[in-house]
Design a protein around this nucleic acid. Structure first.
Lengths: 141, 141
DNA sequence: TTCTTACCGTTGTACTATACAACCGCCCTC
DNA sequence: GAGGGCGGTTGTATAGTACAACGGTAAGAA
């Protein structure tokens, strides 16, 4: 039963939004030790093998002051460290500490387990296509 | 190029999370007059043709106190009204006011336009499948 | 070279969203 | 009619965020 184009777009809009509204609470339940915000920032720093605060702000559409404070918190928790950029003294390159890497991988594991379970009865083909659609939607491809 | 099962699950997890982290800012840019929070609550009230605060809390995994304050704000803005439930005097049934309906449809229109544009080059079949996957993921079907 | 403009990050301030706990009042069952 | 459960509000505390003003560095123009 294929739906009309407009109907599909509305569904996409509605379901993505509903997901977004629940994400914070879901994350809090999944891994109380690392908030959704901290998790995403730390994960991005890790995935990029070091990045600048400005990059985080651009990626997540956040104000630089917000990122500055978040990074300060992560540093206070001992999860990231700042390294001066010898090529540009304005810049601090952020890297996960050893503890940061550890916490991140634990968090990632619990998230992954939750997603695995939730998607347990999906076929491999459906998972593959769903992932591709999300990538396409987010403009990552 | 089909990806492995684990890889797909990781992609889904990552992309959904990235979307969620940007949703607030996107909404603020799209319709500054109605925050993402107010929009989702009002939309749910409207879609259900009236609902209780408890239903909103359950749907969005929010504390009832949070919903209580949000509803109070919406009421102060003249966007929702509370109607006593004759069958149960504990309950207040929430309904959009005429102004609420107006604001909601304006907001919905700008969101819809943004999504339409973003999804403009998707085939109807892809939209239909993506919508179906999201519904399935969110457990709505 | 100096001047100007742009960029990176921090800090002051304010506001919104949220949770948890304690409470009030109504409902229902025994 | 007493006790436990549910719907909702209020007190309190905290996190996340934005905007604006600032200090310091970089890079190109005059």
């Amino acid at each position: 039963m294929p739906a009309g184009r407009d109907e599909s777009v509305d569904t996409i809009q509605r379901e993505l939004t509903a997901f977004a509204r629940r994400a914070r609470a879901t994350a809090a339940r999944l891994h109380p030790e690392l908030s959704l915000v901290s998790y995403t920032l730390l994960a991005h720093i890790d995935a990029q093998h070091g990045c600048r605060a400005t990059d985080l702000a651009a990626h997540y559409l956040l104000d630089k002051s917000t990122v500055s404070r978040q990074v300060a918190t992560l540093e206070k928790l001992g999860l990231v460290e700042r390294r001066p950029d010898p090529a540009d003294h304005r810049v601090q390159v952020l890297h996960p500490t050893e503890a940061g890497t550890r916490v991140l991988s634990a968090t990632h594991a619990s998230r992954r387990a939750a997603y695995q379970e939730r998607l347990a009865d999906w076929s491999t083909e459906d998972l593959d296509r769903f992932a591709a659609y999300l990538l396409r939607y987010n403009g990552g491809a």
